[in-house]
Each structure stands twice: as structure tokens, then as C-alpha cells.
Write a protein that binds this DNA or RNA. Sequence first.
DNA 1: TCAAAAGTGTTCGCATTACACCCATGG
DNA 2: CCATGGGTGTAATGCGAACACTTTTGA
Lengths: 237, 237
Amino acid sequence: MEKGMYTYKYPHAALTADCVVFGFDGWSLKVLLIQRAKGPYESFWAFPGGFMEMEETTEECARRELCEETGLVVSGLRLFGVFSDVGRDPRERVVSVGYYALAKEVEVEGGDDAAQAQWWEIDRVPPMAFDHRTMLRQALRQMRRDIHFEPVGFELLGERFTLGEVQRLYESVLGVRFDRRNFCKKMLQTGVLKAAEAEASVGEGEGKEWPVGRRGRLYCFDREGYEHMKGGFRLEF
Amino acid sequence: MEKGMYTYKYPHAALTADCVVFGFDGWSLKVLLIQRAKGPYESFWAFPGGFMEMEETTEECARRELCEETGLVVSGLRLFGVFSDVGRDPRERVVSVGYYALAKEVEVEGGDDAAQAQWWEIDRVPPMAFDHRTMLRQALRQMRRDIHFEPVGFELLGERFTLGEVQRLYESVLGVRFDRRNFCKKMLQTGVLKAAEAEASVGEGEGKEWPVGRRGRLYCFDREGYEHMKGGFRLEF
DNA sequence: TCAAAAGTGTTCGCATTACACCCATGG
DNA sequence: CCATGGGTGTAATGCGAACACTTTTGA
């Protein structure tokens, strides 16, 4: 960072991008927060994010900050809101662009400005900095809407998964319960899943932790199938 | 506007809000553009919008600029995108927040920076400034998505309207045709419409221009009905 | 009286729903 | 052998899709 001063004829607000990352551990929906190490709201929890640099887009900024602060690399970022209330940051006028992402829940650790990074149950989040509580509500609402039309949920799962996992995922995200038979039927007939090929290598375990009971058949996301069923992806239930 | 200089320790992008206003004249979907009177892209067409001031939110900014440049006052503004590509404005680094709105098509006239303001058929827009062509595509996509779930379309109509008008509206917006009987059936059973009370005053005309043929029954939007049918608003067809 | 738009009801097929039993696995 | 979760089919119902004729009105 250089130390020079930047001057403008008119006042400029600062721009930040924040990243609401949802995760899924197989049973419940989580959200990734960092604990602020300094500045306003020190020790409060917040979404990874930070000030946009001049040679990046807001989306690139969100991705970069997420990586710097948690080590996480995500694929899809989706805009869910712009937060521009005048007093929302005590330091200066700050406008934040909010993105959300979905990720398989993995170990994360703090870096940078973050004392630590941690997954929190979606409905048991700690006190949050700035207007981040509001942001969470909006991100969640947007994501719940999107998941009906885009097979966005699969980003929360591993490469291979069982129908049971998919069902638990949708149930966690939407907060409802489905009939297992109807769920499988519908999910399969959307054509976005294909049976995962029997693993040639190990032929076993694969690191999956099976709970108890019969093992589910493994599927994986079928991008082909999704592409040319143009828009027919509707998960209503 | 004061003339002072504003200095910051780090470079700040400028922030603007732009407003994509869709209109409906009873037959086709339009979009409101202004012709730029100066600056880069002079004489090109663009969306109403401009730089955010320090004591307003981005949404308030969009509303203010829209009014200053076209005289239009709209109710609902909906975020549809943030545009932050590095080179999108030749003057300086500018990040634009895009909102869309729906309005009954009325006479508009330019003001301010705008040489003139004019409604354009949605698929016959003139050359546009900056990345506004891209913005239009995104705004349209977002609006088409929203209209399925929120009775957003009625903002495009007057206080009272016929089912035929509603149907033409949906057909224009979505670019499809519906069976009239099925459309009426479904639209009525959503419960968001109620019969407009027979006008006590004039008892006639009311300024509506009837084309030819039988006159349709008049309805109006029923906010009550919409509120407590929580989420059941789905226009799939 | 003709053209244009509005109003209305039925049938068919598919998709959603509800529902129960057996199988595989690990403890 | 028992608890847990996986896998599967059928019957009833509801909703969307298709479809034609009559009425009103202005020209």
C-alpha cells in the first residue's frame, strides 16, 4: 500500500465488497464469519470483505478478501444487495456490495484482519458488526429464492453425494421436510444428476463418513444434463 | 455544490446509481432513456442516473436522479446489478448500482444533463452509452424473473384495468402468448385482483381509450388479498 | 351487419401428494 | 438382532393445457 493522498473534486464514498459464504456439513446450514481483530466493532463477528482496489471489480474484490481472510476459494458469487445507509460505518461513508457464495464446509482459519474464521449455525450467529445482521437476512432470502431455479445447492456438496444428502441439504436451506420418495423421484427426473461412476481407484471408503445404516448410491452433478433442459429446473415441493 | 477538494488516504471509485424504468403503453414494453447532453458519449442514449451524494443512499440517489432528469416519480426500485468493470467510464473509476422500476408510460421530458427523455420499444433501443446495453439485458432478465412471484406488473398499469390489459402486459414482458380463458381463471384465483367499484362520479369514459369491441370489466389491485395469501403468487403458465 | 374484443366451462393428461414395506449396514 | 437410513410403486387428487361459441360494442 502506498501512502499518497488522493484528491477529488467531489466527495467519494468508500466501496467495500462483503462475502456471505454458506456451508453445509451434511446436516445443517452454516455461515462463515470472521472475528474482527481491530477497528470499529473489534471482536465482533463479520463477513469476510474489505475495500475495493482500483484495478479490480467488486466481485473480484469479494473473492480476494474472502481468500485473504479465510483461505477459502469459491466458484460462484452472486450479488444479493447493496448497503449504503449513511451512518452504517462510523469511520467514513462506506457503501458495501454484498455477494453470497456456497461452499462445502471445510476447515478455515483466520488471516489478515481476522482474528479467526469460523462456521456458525445459520440460526445461532453471534453479535455481528455494522449492519451485517441485516445483510445475513437478505443473503439468506436471496439464496433461498435462487435455489429453486438454479442447481446452486450442489456447490454445497462434494463431488459425489447421495440423494439423502441432497434432501437434507434442501431441507436445511429451506427449512421444510420432504417425503423421501417424492423427493428422489423429482430430483432424478430433473436430469441434473447422473450416477457417479464406480470409483476405479480405491473401490472403497473414499473418505466419506457413513453414519449408520445402509449406504446410499452415489450421484454427481450432470452439467450436460442441466445445460440442455433449458430452464426446466424447478424445485417447488 | 461546493468547490472544495476532498482527499483520502486511499483511492476511491466514484459511485453512481442508474435507473432502468420499464413502461407499458397497453401494447408493448418500453424503456425510458435520456439522451446525454454532454460528457463522454455525448448524444448517446443512457439510463437516468448520476453520482451519489454523501447524505443519500444509492436507492435515494437513483430516485433523485430519475426525477431530476425525467420528472418521473416511481414507487418501487429494485436492485438488479452492480457494474464495476475497470474501464467502463473513460473519466475515472466509476461503479454503478443498477435499479429498475416499473411505471405507467406517461409523457416525460428531459431536464438537467439530459437533452431529452424518451420511451423506446424494448427491442428497438438506440446506441447506448457506457455499458448500458449490458445493464438493460440484466435489468430485463431480473424483472422477468421477479414478475412471476411478485405482483410487480401492476405498477405498469393504471389504477383500474381490464384482464385483457393485464394479459397483454404479461405477454409483452415475457414474450409469450397465453390462452385467454386460462389466463383469466388463474389471474382471478390468485386473489390479487378485486372488481373496481363502479365509478360514482362521471359514470362514464374516465379517460380510458377503448379500442374497438366489447368493453372489459374493470379490476384493481387488491393489496389486502395479496398480503394474506403469503407467497402463493405464482404465475407460471 | 361486420369486425374486434370480452366472457365463460369442460375434458384430458400429467405432476404432485400421500402412503408402507423390505433391504443393507454397523454397532 | 436391532437401530438407522436407503430404496422402491401405486392410487387419488389437483392443476395446467387445450379448446368454441356467444355477447357487446363501435364503425
